[in-house]
């Protein structure tokens, strides 16, 4: 990995910018959710500003994936308020339609469409959601694939790709829609150890380029490198701060 990323603490990455300037892209305020009488989240609050990377960590089963599903509109929640770029998502009410397509999600398994080529995966939403003409969509798609370093794979099918390649394509697919925020749910958890680096590299590059991300991960060291803010999800609540020390409960710094 590039030397400057491993040695410089994340907070120094944007030296000239005061932390309060960027606008709030995502705000969760006391979100609660129960699954069949079992409380999963009991008051989760976090704030994510533009250009920031928030690492959400916690023990297994603490509800991290649930938080991502709530933010992206795949799951309802019981109380609290979720605000995405000024649009409010209220508990018990359907997710606002216009937010679909504005929040990008990367799942643990890349979830590519297996019956389409890699390029078709990336351009599908460009053509059907953003209504771009085919040539333009193709251009944009190839550009995003290049950014992730997987452009040569454009005409291959997902089944023939390695795990790391699939994840990079998934990220390219999500970025092609210019989302307000990118949610990554343990992107390297399912990968063989040799393939983890190529994905982490790209995520770090995105972080440096100012992509707003919410990163759920078990890889605490990676979280410390990539993120500018940290949240620890434990027993249904979450502590959020800019101090990497928040994660020390999970793993002391080396």
């Amino acid at each position: 990995m590039p030397a400057d990323l491993t040695t410089r603490p994340a907070a120094d990455r944007h030296p000239g910018r005061a932390p309060d300037e960027p606008r709030v892209v995502l705000n969760l305020d006391q979100i609660t959710k129960r699954f069949n009488e079992r409380p999963v989240l009991s008051g989760v609050s976090l704030t994510l500003r533009q250009g920031e990377v928030l690492a959400l960590c916690g023990p297994s089963g603490s509800g991290k994936t649930t938080v991502i599903r709530i933010i992206s509109g795949l799951a309802p929640f019981d109380s609290g308020l979720c605000t995405i770029d000024g649009t409010a998502v209220n508990a018990g009410q359907p997710y606002p339609r216009r937010l679909y397509g504005s929040v990008g999600v990367i799942f643990q398994d890349a979830c590519l469409f297996p019956h389409m080529t890699v390029l078709a995966n990336v351009t599908l939403a460009l053509r059907k959601f953003k209504r771009l003409p085919a040539a333009q969509a193709r251009q944009r798609g190839i550009a995003e694939l290049e950014r992730m370093g997987v452009a040569p794979l454009a005409d291959r099918y997902p089944a023939t790709l390695s795990g790391g390649e699939r994840q990079r394509v998934a990220i390219a697919r999500a970025l092609a829609l210019d989302p307000l925020v990118l949610l990554l749910d343990e992107p390297t958890a399912n990968l063989d150890p040799g393939l983890v680096d190529e994905v982490c590299e790209r995520i770090l590059a995105l972080a440096c380029a100012g992509t707003t991300m919410l990163l759920v991960t078990h890889a605490i060291d990676f979280a410390r490198q990539a993120a500018t803010a940290f949240a620890l999800l434990r027993e249904g609540t979450c502590q959020c701060s800019r101090d990497p020390g928040t994660l020390d409960h999970l793993r002391p710094p080396r």
Partner: peptide
């Protein structure tokens, strides 16, 4: 897999698409 539909939803595709 239900996840296929979910991913497509987050990409803004309509139910018909």
């Amino acid at each position: 897999a239900p996840q296929q539909q979910e991913v497509a939803r987050t990409m803004g595709l309509s139910a018909g698409a």
